[in-house]
Design a protein around this nucleic acid. Structure first.
Length: 238
DNA sequence: CGATTTTGACCAGCGC
DNA sequence: GCGCTGGTCAAAATCG
């Protein structure tokens, strides 16, 4: 349903091979000198990286997308990992919102988990996936609030804010529970563009930066014309 | 001086 | 209802 010539490896929510090419009307360009050339398939990304609410849970349970990636406003075209894709022995870290209690009562839609089974490595980008199995294990309590499509990924970086080609304005910073590092909230400065992102460092490994995007850009990257070296970018689509 | 960042206050969702 | 927490607002401060 989505044009993609993915050559990458999606494994339990990770993109391990950067050689994924795809086309889409929406995308991110991450430019960072410390990163390898990366272009993520929109299909792969949406398939493993986002979940936004009750509808998504239903979709995930059916393992079928209900919407193509370019339709809808709440997680279009998102697919879920099979519950069996999440191994209990894998190291997962919660990176998403607080739909579930911090007191460990349940796992709910809207949470994001990452699995870095290869361990942190330089120039390694990890796409975060979602545990559907965990949702099945317990009764899911879901926020009714409509969510924008989201995905998050981790990068090993000394700088918090990666240059993704868009212009961002910081609108908040918060110290979240059980973490030493504050979480920063950014909004796209483009008028009528409601895309947000938040950036935080992993508690377990402060070298890893977790970037979570929410929403879709309605415009091109601000310095798209300046792209002279596609091989030095990371492009994320969904 | 406009754009951006900082930061405390406020709000909403959730569990008890 | 209350307390806790994450997310957002907005005034003040800072930057270029």
């Amino acid at each position: 349903m989505f044009p993609s010539t993915s050559k990458g490896v999606m494994n339990q929510g990770l993109v391990e091979n950067p050689e994924i090419m795809a086309t889409s009307h929406m995308g991110f360009n991450l430019q960072a000198s410390h990163l390898p050339p990366l272009t993520f398939s929109p299909y792969s990304l949406s398939k493993t990286c986002t979940v936004g609410g009750e509808d998504d849970v239903s979709r995930l349970r059916g393992n079928l997308p209900s919407l193509p990636p370019d339709q809808g406003d709440d997680g279009s075209g998102r697919l879920g990992q099979s519950p069996t894709q999440r191994s209990s022995s894998d190291l997962w870290s919660r990176t998403g919102d607080r739909a579930a209690s911090d007191k460990g009562s349940s796992v709910a839609a809207g949470e994001y988990y990452s699995n870095n089974k290869n361990g942190p490595a330089a120039n390694n980008i990890i796409i975060d996936g979602l545990s559907v199995g965990a949702m099945r294990m317990k009764k899911v309590k879901v926020r009714r609030k409509v969510r924008e499509p989201r995905f998050c990924f981790k990068t090993m970086s000394e700088v918090d804010v990666l240059d993704d080609g868009y212009k961002w304005r910081k609108y908040g910073q918060k110290v979240v529970k059980n973490t030493q590092h504050p979480r920063s909230y950014y909004r796209c400065t483009q008028e009528n563009c409601r895309v947000k992102k938040r950036i935080e460092r992993m508690a377990e490994d402060p070298r890893m930066v977790i970037t979570t995007y929410e929403g879709r850009h309605v415009h091109s990257p601000s310095h798209a014309e300046e792209e002279s070296q596609p091989s030095s970018e990371v492009t994320l689509f969904w």
